[in-house]
Amino acid sequence: MLSSTLILIILSLFLGAGVWLFFVWAVRKGEFDDTERAKYRMLDDDDLPQEVKNEGKKKTDD
């Protein structure tokens, strides 16, 4: 009982440490320098499938 709890606790510590390292890496890389940017990212629809793009073009041409 006690040893299984201990394993779980240590496991959660490792998980937390992993997430923390990821966070520190992100701060170092400057991911948080421009928080305004994130909300416009989804509007950069570069990855739309080709046919959707073509349809959009047709509409504006009409």
Binding site: S12, G16, V19, W20, F23, V24, V27, R28, F32
Partner: peptide
């Protein structure tokens, strides 16, 4: 100022992750 802000952010993030662990205990 940029360095200061990043270090504050790292400190805060660290504190949040550890406090979350701590809450469980």
């Amino acid at each position: 100022a940029d360095r200061e802000r990043r270090s504050l952010l790292t400190r805060f993030g660290t504190a949040v992750f550890l406090s979350m662990q701590l809450m469980g205990y």
